[in-house]
Write a protein that binds this DNA or RNA. Structure first.
Lengths: 248, 248
DNA sequence: CGATTTCATGTTGTCGACAATACGCAAGGC
DNA sequence: GCCTTGCGTATTGTCGACAACATGAAATCG
């Protein structure tokens, strides 16, 4: 195959590649970008941090070509910023940028909810019910991580119920850019109870196909999300503040 | 610098690169992706057509590395699709996909229009007035190309007046994916008059900051755009139909 | 004759090496 | 003292070469 990939966990490359007509093999570039994306949104690589190609190639046991292709993907998704001849930095969101992102995210979420009221199938209903149940369990067990995952799944499921692939993708894209902020927000928020209790009526409005009520609730709910993240700047702290002025 | 880049027009590389603290130099990858994107949306490279790396590297006089990075960008923007070990094809939109794209595009356009009513500056007003004037001139002169450009600029200007960078970018992204379809649509539409005459009231509603009226008009206007493209399948014809089933 | 296998060819995937650029630090000039 | 200049080093940008894979045609077998 390629290098032994001995250091660290890494991507484990592709172990046994069978012809298997059905499943398309994932390209190395895709695997790498997925992995780095995950590291970024889970705050293992901090905003403002420089991404050194050499370090990553050694970590993954690959060459710089697929890595650089992966970086182009992440830059297009606005998770990193590539500065010509200087390298790539993890994007650090300002309060204003978070506000702008949420502003659009809310509208897409509302639109998805409205569409979902028209298009959702019984299977969608069941999925959403299941995620709500998981959230409740995790909430009562005090398990914030599981809660967060279920919460994410809940909102993505509503988007999925719109059955509009374009909307689903746009929604997911914004969700990714906001993921880290919400992740850090949820894990330390005081009024978890309030946030949680808003999901019950949302789910109810959806299951009753009450589009206008659903839109109202979702707007309100995410307005709350904004208040949550905007009040702690911890979520925005950059590990290594970078001066980008010269490249503007 | 690098290769003579002798064949064809090509990218002309970077002619004179000065240190120039103010302006960031555009990377080769960026230049190439911009160029190919332009070729795709202007229908010079047809949907369904395979993108051969060798051909393009020779055309541009560059190596495959920056080209492949450019392709990753275009794939992330959903203008091409990269199929592992097989290559890249220009995306061919089905009628359903166009409908889904327009459905989201309309919502973003409406949202932008509403926001613009709150946030627009006198400068925005002037820009929009100017584009409207250009459209009128081109319309009366029967110049469909200039008209199309001004029409694009008009809609982008409304988005820009929202002063929300995230919204502007999302709007632009969808606009790109729909560009070719609308481009081909406008150039052969019969009821050009109707489409044109709708812009006057839109501009008026905007300049009067009448958000709800503006939203209504924009929705209606783009509903018209949908009827325009949906009725000719010419816009969707693939040069070389490709069977992607095996890679699903 | 039809289905399968083998192989030749073209294309993509990955790599290591070299070139170009930016950065930090020391030396020099005002 | 402070700004400028000139290097050495680290990092990114680009390239050509080779490896892996897919495709289609010829050859083989039933």
């Amino acid at each position: 195959m390629n290098k032994p990939a001995m250091p660290g966990g890494a991507v484990t490359a592709v172990s046994a590649r069978r012809p298997a007509i059905i499943v398309a093999p994932k390209s190395l570039t895709q695997q790498i970008s997925d992995h780095i994306r995950s590291e970024i949104i889970h705050d293992n690589i901090k905003p403002g941090e420089w991404i050194r190609e050499k370090a990553l190639t050694e970590q993954f046991g690959i060459s710089r070509t697929p890595l650089r292709e992966a970086l182009q993907i992440l830059a297009t998704q606005r998770l990193i910023e590539i500065i010509p001849n200087r390298g790539a930095v993890v994007v650090a969101l300002s309060d204003d940028e978070i506000r702008h992102l949420l502003e659009v995210y809310v509208r897409l979420d509302v639109f998805a909810a409205e569409l979902a009221c028209e298009k959702a199938t019984p299977l969608d209903d069941e999925t959403i019910r299941r995620h709500l149940a998981t959230m409740a369990e995790a909430y009562h067990a005090g398990d914030r991580y599981t809660y967060f995952d279920a919460n994410q799944a809940f909102h993505l499921a509503i988007a999925a119920a719109s059955h509009n692939p374009v909307l689903i993708e746009m929604h997911a894209q914004l969700n990714l850019r906001l993921y880290r902020t919400r992740y850090l927000g949820v894990l330390q928020a005081e009024n978890w109870a309030k946030a949680f209790n808003e999901h019950e009526p949302i789910a109810e409005a959806f299951l009753n196909r009450n589009a206008s009520e659903l839109a109202r609730l979702v707007s309100e709910h995410l307005g709350f999300a904004w208040r949550m993240v905007s009040s702690d700047e911890v979520a925005n702290a950059a590990a290594t503040p970078v001066d980008l002025a010269r490249t503007a």
